[in-house]
Amino acid sequence: MSQSVMVYTEIRNGVIHPVSYELTAKARELADKLVCDVCVVAFYDTLQEVPEIFFAYGADRVIAAQDQCFSLFNQEIHTKVLSEIILKEQPQIVLAPATTGGRTVMPAVAGTIHTGLTADCTGLDIEPESGLLLQTRPAIGGNIMATIKTPNHRPQMATVRPKTFKIPEKRRVSGVIQPFEVDDSMKQTAIEVLEWIPLESGSENIQDRDVIVSGGKGLKRKEGFKLLQQLADLFQAGIGASRPTIEAKWMDYPHQVGLSGKVVSPKLYFAIGISGAVQHIAGMETSDLVVSINKDPDAAIFQVSDYAFCGDLYEIVPKMIAVFSGLLSDRIDETESEKHVQ
């Protein structure tokens, strides 16, 4: 069946990234409105799961391209193979993760096959009268939401940030696995992958954390981040930082939250000593719960906070640590007592 909704999945070192399931489930929802099938594309060398796992999240078909050329990420090969599959399958929609991989491969595909691509969508739906994909994304630093259509070009393509959509319960359904042979011409590349250097543990991507503790220039000195680390340790939180602290070399670039750094959306975000430049707010305002501490009562960050503390962060943070560690030890006690009951 043609006219499918296609998902370009993300598989890193043999592990399927959860965003792949999030997008498969979203594709299912869109495909049900369009009455068409969901086709998942998986590029991998080794796989810790079986490709059939995608059926549980709504895929009808999995195009499985297993080849050694996918052992280390090569954006040129991904672009060629995905473009080839899209031209052959003629899907009406392609969804892809807005990760460094998806945000590299998808625009290259769009340039190759001449169609539109909408980056970082936070909402996707089908317009009932036209059957067109409605792609909603934040624009101008998240101050407005723009709804975008791709009226005349196919497929309609969108990237979506991880954790934008929920992963549903697994279903017991079956589907079709279609092996895809990567021929040698697609493996010709001007890119030689030399080395893969994983981040040290503890410095993993802050975008994957449920809690982020961020610091700004209000810390006044680099050592202020040590205090934030104590707060972060209570929640196994990641450390974020505003652009000025990165420029002052208080913290490394992978920790930068904002337009020119990472856009994060954790369950709990602490903005400590951050005044709230538009460029920073755009990087964190979709967080579930925002807590800020600033000595300036007019700080812009307070406008996007649920809990705003006005005062000296060096007084407030230690108090928070004291109260929260009590809270967390209560919780451990509860879990312990539950174990005893069992």
Partner: peptide
């Protein structure tokens, strides 16, 4: 290929 068809200002839902 893409067209902006609607622009909305998100409601600031946080009660600070």
């Amino acid at each position: 290929p893409t067209r902006v068809v609607k622009v909305t200002t998100p409601q600031k839902t946080r009660k600070t």
